[in-house]
């Protein structure tokens, strides 16, 4: 049901550089887990409404007032790299 290629593709979508041995191991385990959780389909009829959340909340608003927040130094305190009060990240676009 779930192939080695599927797992490799999912890992790419999830931005995890899995090793080949991990892909093999996971493919077998996911097969077993998916077989077990697929049982939800037995009772999930078209007449049952889905629930995404225990509270019937829509939008929650508060007054738009200025309140204390982190300083740039605090916000950057855990950054792997920073420069001129900004997060420094590896290149996002290619050279051309």
């Amino acid at each position: 049901m779930i192939s080695r290629d599927d797992v490799a593709h999912l890992a790419q979508l999830a931005r995890i550089e899995l090793e080949a041995s991990e892909i093999d191991h996971l493919a077998g385990q996911l097969e077993v887990i998916l077989g077990a959780v697929a049982r939800v389909q037995e009772v999930a009829g078209a007449d049952v409404a889905p629930t995404s959340h225990p509270l019937p909340l829509k939008n929650v608003f508060r007054p738009d007032v200025i309140r204390p927040s982190l300083t740039p130094e605090e916000a950057l305190s855990g950054a792997p790299a920073s420069e001129e009060q900004r997060f420094r990240v590896p290149q996002i676009l290619g050279e051309e």
Binding site: V7, A11, A14, I16, L30, V37, A38, A44
Partner: peptide, 27 residues
């Protein structure tokens, strides 16, 4: 990793209704 991959699968197009959608109905 196992759970992230599983969740990515359950939410991916083509499987969403059968897995995540059905689970929400069970809820």
């Amino acid at each position: 990793k196992r759970r992230i991959i599983l969740g990515t699968y359950a939410l991916s197009s083509g499987y969403y209704d059968a897995y995540y959608g059905s689970a929400q109905k069970v809820r």
